[in-house]
Design a protein around this nucleic acid. Structure first.
Lengths: 324, 324
DNA sequence: CGAAGCTGATAATGCGCATTAGTAGCGCGG
DNA sequence: CCGCGCTACTAATGCGCATTATCAGCTTCG
């Protein structure tokens, strides 16, 4: 329509004005006019095929992203991710098609589309080690939200810095007079759990107080252990304990302090203002995309830990028989 | 690696067993083995370029999808969309890159990527008419969530059926003894607003009662109009009115009934159990994707309205001076 | 006045796949 | 022993773009 070759259109479209390439102003204008009139837009697919870049960032989650179940937990990450993607002028591709394979989503499924994106962000409490190893081996650019142990090589991530957060929390707790603390939760499995547990162990050791590990949120166990403050890995467990305590006529935090370590991945009606700390979820999502774009441009394997913000809350008090 | 041509690999990969194509079992097995060993996956981009189909559905929203502001409102739609996309084995592409152009996102921006997806779902209270017209003109498959007026042709959509919902609600209200009702809100601009208003007008006419239209949620205006029941287009306005009424010493619903017409697009701390109806948001999202896949296969311009479910709530009562 | 230099554009190529049009190899009938 | 019909593959082509190499037309300079 403009009487020029496809090459010229491509040149004009991409606004190439290098010294290498020259386009007469009038020709350029003519092409632009036709583009405006027809509203032509280059097919992003072909574009991507040709220049191996499409400004699409993939987002892979092991759990469904939206479903109410874990929505409250994942939502903030996504807010950060979308925020940064918009700033970077990228679209987001949600890998929702990875049919649950054996009850669990896998990145590399039958007909994986990971490669469609320039790179991707991984979200989830745990991520399949084999998938991680393969991402690294195949040099697919990605950044994990949440620290990950090496998987056949260092994994790029943006995590929450749990150990210091748990330590500081423990200091606050011990400063209130508590001497026997408990950690409730698995303390392993996911890196985030292991990190919390590590912080707990380090803290009790450094502060010279007792540290008990209980896998299940059973109040009897807590009481039997003579513990006055409980660190719950999952806030949902905290809710369980608080309710059990109240039913038993105990008062929180007067008779038992409960500290939440940030996570709330299980759906639960919660109206308890837990003392503990806040995982900087939005910031993590945002930073993950930032690092991903950086990886795409310059490569590398960035690893960052973001600090958790202490939350005063109302479930921490001095132990009942405290003698300051 | 398998000693066969690219064509053969393609054939095996796509599991083509037509009568047209034949592959010796042993050859097929050999290729499959190599595929398993190397973990090869076909590049979805090239695939899309070659067969013009990539099982990616675009989602365009005029407001940011996740941000807390309107999150509570859009979230349910997305839940439904993701749900159905997963069932259909499609990935979702969120067009987040449509930089706010004049404060508002546009589908066809500088470098639009709409075409990357097989088709797309549109979300938002209002959608630019020109964008709609262009989608139709360019035959880009799409389905709008929310009814839309024609835009140079019929628009495919899944909407909420407001008129009957508002009428039924009005009947409940009138049955309680109310004779002077008010509609608070724009009543125009977006189709969803116009539809509510239409239902309101039809209802008051059919029921033979007074129907006042107030654009702003000002309690004085409501009282001045001698109205006993208010239909609020936006729940946020309902909150405003209820608070104003309470500050004035009035009781809701004893002194004033407030009916919410489903929408809550503005962020507001709400703990009022409004009487009114529920927009089937999740269902709309789900159905939109369903229709989109249908359009992709067979074409057409489906238009559907889903019923709103009545919500009993606690802001509807007989008017104070009711004489049944 | 011919060659070198520059300008402004184009033909050709490749990206990784699906698809179409063949084409070897082989058994079999005549 | 030639040709026909099958089977089981492969060569070639196109998708829509970015990129590279190339080229035609003009200036300018010696």
């Amino acid at each position: 329509m403009a009487g020029v070759s496809q090459t010229t259109v491509s040149l004009v479209l991409n606004n190439r004005a290098d010294s290498e390439v020259r386009i007469a102003p009038e020709t350029r204008e003519r092409v632009l006019r036709v583009i405006r009139e027809t509203g032509y837009v280059a097919d992003p697919v072909a574009r991507r095929l040709a220049d191996r870049r499409n400004r699409i960032l993939g987002v892979f989650t092991y759990e469904a992203v939206f479903p109410a179940a874990s929505a409250d937990f994942y939502h903030p990450f996504l807010v950060g991710i979308e925020e940064c993607a918009e700033e970077a002028g990228c679209d987001l591709l949600l890998f929702t098609s990875g049919k649950a394979h054996g009850g669990r989503r896998r990145i590399f499924s039958e007909d994986s589309r990971v490669r469609l994106a320039d790179g991707c962000v991984l979200l989830g409490r745990t991520i399949d080690r084999d998938d991680l190893a393969r991402l690294i081996a195949e040099r697919i650019p990605f950044v994990s939200v949440g620290r990950r142990d090496d998987a056949g090589g260092p994994v790029p991530y943006v995590g929450a810095d749990y150990p210091p957060a748990v330590r500081e929390l423990a200091e606050r707790v011990v400063a209130r007079g508590h001497r026997r603390l408990a950690y409730v939760g698995a303390g392993e499995g996911a890196e985030s759990y292991a990190d919390r547990m590590r912080g707990f162990r380090e803290a009790t050791a450094a502060l010279g107080v007792e540290g008990v590990h209980l896998r299940e949120p059973r109040l009897e166990d807590v009481l039997a252990a003579g513990v006055t403050a409980v660190f719950v890995e999952e806030s949902a467990d905290g809710v369980t304990l608080v309710q059990a305590a109240r039913e038993r006529g105990m008062s929180v935090p007067a008779d038992l302090s409960v500290l939440a370590l940030g996570a709330l991945t299980r759906p639960v009606h919660i109206d308890i203002d837990f003392s503990g700390f806040r995982i900087p979820r939005r910031e993590m999502g945002h930073r993950a995309v930032e690092l991903l774009t950086q990886v795409l441009e310059r490569g590398g394997t960035p690893q960052e830990l973001l600090a958790c913000e202490p939350v005063e809350g109302s479930t921490l008090a001095a132990p009942s028989g405290a003698t300051r």
